[in-house]
Design a protein around this nucleic acid. Sequence first.
DNA 1: ATGGTTGTTGCACAA
Length: 256
Amino acid sequence: MRIVTWNVNSLRARQERVEEWLAEVQPDVVLMQETKLADDAFPTLAFESMGYSCAHHGQGQWNGVAILSKVGLDDVVANFAGPGDPDPDARIITATCGGVRVSSVYVPNGRSLDDDHYTYKLWWLGRLQAHLDADTSPDQDVIVGGDYNIAPDDRDVHDPKVLVGATHGSEPERQRLAELEAWGLTDVFRTMHDDDRMFSWWDYRGGDFHQGRGMRIDLLMCSKSVVDRVTWTAIDRNARKGKSPSDHAPVMVDLD
DNA sequence: ATGGTTGTTGCACAA
């Protein structure tokens, strides 16, 4: 079973490229972020014609997350489960696909360390823990995949200096990621690429992609029983090339 | 210190 996560940065602007990539790579489950669509604008028919069932949690204009699956799509939960406030934004959707409890997450960017949006980002990551406690358990097959807007450590950025005094690498953010690991999730890419410096996002500006100035902020966080089934994992940086790419590349994992 | 680019919306803001 092939599972991927991809921040498409507007599905309306990316539909053609997304369909081409899906036809080429043939993932069974797709965790999509930043559709930037309202639910009634989601192109369900186009994906159904490619063999996917679809679940979308959108708000229009910004955010929006989806799950596409060829291996079943059951028990869909939009927004956070369990006690605690709901997210005012459309940033998480959860479903069971092929026996795996998958979530597509778009963690708030944070903007800067003194911004209210950074406080929201830290709240959001804590609220995700409460969601997981209510929705599932670490001894199940669980994948929480998406755009975390966090570089897990200094291997995950072209130059660690860009994280000094900035979001994406601050201690509180990395602490929240460590708490997800303590809950039972593992950044699956690092289990097979110990020293590789590969990125999943490059700013559109300044030729950053061609200069290699990126970060690895899109993660597939997997429970132990999932990690034990992994045969391959990679980031498709080819998807960042060419005409009208998303600023994110897809992250992929294959399970036995 | 600023700018660089893209997407959505509307004459900015978010990333």
